[in-house]
């Protein structure tokens, strides 16, 4: 069986003013349908760049991204993105933000009433139905991030791409949203790729953790399979030896073998 999503020898360099910066070098990875994969690495190594390549928001320099054996090189709603800073449109209400996506994706396929129900279903999925008429400036950071997730899910994407979705949130809200995402993943069984800085988050949520070396010309250093049964409960895992081992492996990778060298 061919891979669901295949990153085939991706290179990415940026050229500006005659200067070439090699950001990613020879990235190869295959991801199965329904898999939850985290990408972890030090700041600036090229995680967002990699996610943008998969999303089609930036073009590969060499290699190819293949989804179900078809090359993708432009963005599209089947690869929905939850952006690092929510990216809700501030002049639209919560409802209208999701509506913008739903109208575009389902304009010919669902009736007006069905679209409304679908918007509300997605808002309810992230427990934001009650705030449907609020504007982004009137809700908290965690709520904005949830609406961002609802908007992405409402596109019924094949792959959900999350760029540090909880990076700007406090620990409690973060834990709460991590549980929501696990819950959604269990229910919808869609493929998710998430960038994170947080080792615990990566181990808790992922089937596999992709660890990246430091840039420039970052590569995939190691891929760790997290062999923990689902559903996972954060409290039960604290003392689980497999959890502790996975956590240690990631920490060792990040802080022993690929410490961020300031001079680089």
């Amino acid at each position: 069986m061919p891979a669901y999503l295949k990153l085939d020898h991706l290179d990415k360099s940026f050229i500006r003013g005659g200067q070439t910066t090699e950001v990613l070098k020879d990235i190869s990875l295959t991801i199965d349908q329904g898999e939850f994969v985290s990408i972890i690495g030090h700041s600036g190594c090229g995680k967002s760049t990699l996610l943008n390549l998969i999303a089609g928001l930036t073009q590969v320099t060499a290699g190819a991204v293949l989804l179900e054996n078809r090359e993708v090189n432009a963005p599209g709603p089947e690869r929905a993105v939850v952006f690092q800073n929510h990216s809700l449109l501030p002049w639209l209400t919560v409802y209208e933000n999701v509506k913008l996506a739903v109208e575009k994706v389902f304009s010919g396929k669902k009736s007006r009433a069905e679209r409304h129900d679908w918007i509300m279903a997605n808002l309810d999925l992230v427990q934001m139905g009650h705030a449907r008429d609020k504007r982004p400036s009137e809700i908290s950071g965690g709520m904005k991030q949830r609406v961002g997730i609802a908007r992405a899910l409402a596109m019924e994407p094949k792959i959900l791409l999350l760029d540090e979705p909880f990076g700007a949130l406090d620990a409690l809200t973060r834990a709460h949203l991590q549980d929501s995402v696990m819950d959604i993943h269990a229910r919808l069984k869609n493929t998710m790729i998430m960038i994170t800085h947080d080792v615990d988050e990566a181990v808790l949520l992922s089937d596999r953790i992709v660890m990246m070396t430091n840039g420039p010309a970052a590569r995939i250093g190691e891929v760790l399979t997290v062999d923990l049964p689902r559903p996972r409960k954060r409290l039960d895992l604290v003392s689980d030896s497999r959890y502790i081992a996975a956590r240690e492996a990631v920490l060792r990778f990040l802080y022993e073998r690929h410490r961020l060298v300031e001079a680089a």
Binding site: L57, P77, L89, K104
Partner: peptide
């Protein structure tokens, strides 16, 4: 915002 627009085509 441009990225959102692009993802939505």
């Amino acid at each position: 915002y441009r990225n959102v627009a692009q993802v939505l085509r």
